[in-house]
Amino acid sequence: MSTVVCYVETENGAVLDASLRALTFARGLAAEATEVSALIAGPPGADVTAQLQSFGVTSICVLSAGGLTGYAPLALAKALAAMASRSEAAAVVAAATDHGNEVLAHLGALTGLELAANCTKAHLVEGERRFRLVRQRWGGSLIEEAVLSAATGLFSVAADSVQPVPSPAAGSLAVSEIAPQLDALDLALQALESPEESPGISLASAKVVVSGGRGVGGPEGFAVIEELAALLGGAVGVSRVVTSLGWRPHREQVGQTGTRVAPDLYLACGISGAVQHLAGCQSSKHMVAVNTDPSAPIMSRADYAVIGSVAEVLPALVDAIRARRSSC
């Protein structure tokens, strides 16, 4: 029997999908039966408890520390360290979110343990303190096979590569509190939280994204991109060239160092299809490219293409959609 500890994130009384995927990954780490213990930041509601139980968690530790009100990566890492050492855990796992990676990095630094980030697969080599793993580099454009030798392996899980699967053998569940020793520095490292001012339809969750690249020609060229996005109830996306040139704000950037999107329709206008751009939109259900160059790399990733200039095609498309709506 081996134990795996998992940092689980919750939001609005439910477990994050990315954390459910991390739990699925955690259960599959060892061939032998695995106990999964979850750390969560605050008391679980009934829904969270039920979800964790169905994903095979057998014990939940709730971080309890006076003086903490916001997300506190160092305190969470200390709690994970205590849980891992108490159970002689084979591994500590978290979703490869900004929080998950940050907490695991603190844990690695506190304990000297090694962290493999953005893993898609890992398993413990039987009878050895060694894991074989697969992880993403370049935002998923490159896959690395590696070996991690460690008494306890730390893994963050690339969310889009592991399906969330409930445990077939969900059993009983114990809930307890964990109160790590925290000094002033640990307590100082916590977030003061406030709601973000939201700028309209969120790019990350939009069902339609109309994206423009260098081929849009300049900041004025984005008027028609905005118009089309509004007509389709979608959000505007851009390539890095566009933000670097100052044509549009960075919050609209799609890609490895921008936002990752997964819309039903991704319309790439005047975008060449560099791997770092595709890293942010390859989960789109359907991709349509509008490009003057029939041999642009985007052509081998898009489902449909229009060979032509954005400046010609988009205004005509907007007109056609308007005409269709007014005749209905």
Binding site: S141, I143, E144, V288, Y304, A305, V306, V313
Partner: peptide, 27 residues
């Protein structure tokens, strides 16, 4: 303890986009 063994480019389906047309005739 973390040793890279090999790298691979993921085999995302290289497809050939279906061309809807050229210029405004594609609208």
């Amino acid at each position: 303890g973390l040793e890279m063994r090999s790298l691979a480019v993921p085999t995302t389906e290289r497809r050939s986009a279906e061309v809807l047309g050229h210029g405004v005739e594609a609208v």
